[in-house]
Design a protein around this nucleic acid. Sequence first.
DNA 1: CCCTACATAGAAAGCGCTTGCTGCACCGTT
DNA 2: AACGGTGCAGCAAGCGCTTTCTATGTAGGG
Lengths: 350, 350
Amino acid sequence: MTVTLADVAVRAQVSPATVSRVLNGNYPVAASTRERVLRAVDELDYVLNGPASALAAATSDLVGILVNDIADPFFGIMAGAVQSEIGGPGGRAGGERLAVVCNTGGSPERELTYLTLLQRQRAAAVVLTGGAVEDTAHAAAVATKLRKLAAAGTRVVLCGRPPAPAGTDAVALTFDNRGGGQLLTEHLIGLGHRRMGYIAGPEERTTTRHRLEGHRDALAAHGVPDDPAWTVHGRYDRRAGYEATLELLRREPGLTAVVAANDTVALGACAALRDSGLRIPDDVSVVGFDDLPFSIDAVPALTTVRLPLADAGARAGRLAMGREEAPPDGIAQIRGELMVRGSTGAPKGV
Amino acid sequence: MTVTLADVAVRAQVSPATVSRVLNGNYPVAASTRERVLRAVDELDYVLNGPASALAAATSDLVGILVNDIADPFFGIMAGAVQSEIGGPGGRAGGERLAVVCNTGGSPERELTYLTLLQRQRAAAVVLTGGAVEDTAHAAAVATKLRKLAAAGTRVVLCGRPPAPAGTDAVALTFDNRGGGQLLTEHLIGLGHRRMGYIAGPEERTTTRHRLEGHRDALAAHGVPDDPAWTVHGRYDRRAGYEATLELLRREPGLTAVVAANDTVALGACAALRDSGLRIPDDVSVVGFDDLPFSIDAVPALTTVRLPLADAGARAGRLAMGREEAPPDGIAQIRGELMVRGSTGAPKGV
DNA sequence: CCCTACATAGAAAGCGCTTGCTGCACCGTT
DNA sequence: AACGGTGCAGCAAGCGCTTTCTATGTAGGG
């Protein structure tokens, strides 16, 4: 019923082997023969059977991209950039690759399951984005999985994620979350803030920890008091930012600034402040992290740290395709850039 | 080197056929045998070879999701919902399916290429999201492709997209863009607006046309003048909204409202108005479309039409899996809900 | 004019899995 | 006691492609 390689071969009056070679272009085929084959392909409207091809060649053209939340532009931007580089349609590379974007929802189990699924598909490469979960058992399981993937010829790239344990020869592009956190808090300290609330992400994520550490480093470096009660953990979403802000205000009505784990959380914080009758930045300054597209449209525009998400994703894509050399030691630290905008100002009375 | 079904069979002292049947669970296998097999699978850490399985069974567990822009939450939300329903890890269904999210960037060619790629992979289902391009040649090409996919057993679902030509037995979940556009403009007319600018999306998209038609229908129905110069086309992004607004202001400084093609564009419009020294909604009212999460955080919050993106995506996922009955005629119209918020008010002097 | 070299095409052996059919116990019937 | 069922397991034939190895035709070199 469906057209197969053999059908094309018959029509072009050549052997199946020749058709395969024309299609793969990795073996000399006389120009006239090639043309005949291509015409037959066209006339029969032949479409290669991917699974069969993958089975015979022991590799597929699938590239997996693991993200925590596909509805979050933070991941969408990276995923899009990866995809544009791996040579899918419209990508600049030749071979046509299919990007498989997998939504883990931040769940370690799902992450593992997706890795198995990709292993099952004999994926050509896997890109893991976003922070890792700090759970020893899980980290070990992931490392094992990655090692197996690598052993099976799947290239593994971490994008915006801390390096995997040694042994996994995965290339890592990590964001300098710590440095970014420091930048932000130093900016606030420089403006005169001394009582700053911190809305952190989920406790067990590396991203959360690093950003928070950066904040604390800055506080310590400048001798600014750091009350544990001024830090609240929550999810990386608007709602969490809203609620955490109300909670912080309850605990310390005298806060002059709120440092949010990321831009989305910061928006929630802004909403909560506004609803509490506080003006930004006159009463309370707010900072975010990531510089997602909408941050500039907040009113006032959000002071934040810009992460080059698209660049990082593109680079990860190239690394996944072996089109770019891995950084020394397989690790590259990517810095963020402080974007000072309207949501921060000097505290009242300074 | 890699463990195969045969290895497991040897270890469990059964035939490969039995192992396959245990794994697929679609054939009676004695409990004791099953257990032995499962233990062997576990001990050997066996991972099924997807391509081989797909080849032999003539179907795969890949589900394709085509989106215009993966970095846009509009699509991210739908894609995430589809994915959670198709039974990937964490999904409620049993079988483990891999969602392949394909980023067309709105390009017809890429759309076609991706469909071919999915056809090549013998995808179990394909979900197309977002408006279609109104180009006869392209539409015909897509229809042909969809027909072939369907013939090959791939289920096709359109989500937020107008129904495909008859013959393609694709189920369509379409958004009532026209009705939504009408709602918005009627709301403005009701507030007293008479000079409204309209920032439309790219000309050739169905979504663009339908929303614009809704707007014009409302104008006509209420006898409000409709100057063609008050409509500007642009892309569906913030930048386009910003520039289009400046252009509209240049053409007609007396505008009292700006109707944007979607929320993202509306944000750009707000920024342009603000930068022009105009207050929202005191000087100019603004409305968007879609009600993306960030719309409520705009200041003032955006009046818009809420589209149940997550619900629609989930439903599309279920349809793609054959877990939900198709609507009569294979078409379901999904209405939007008017969300009146702070960005609209009566024009000055009313 | 024969021999070696090169360029191309073909034959055929899998790749690892699924599945229709067959085989064989064991059981309840007549 | 012979027989048809029924429940499980195995055999073996592919699924459609890639790729190694071999065969052939042609062109040059001696």
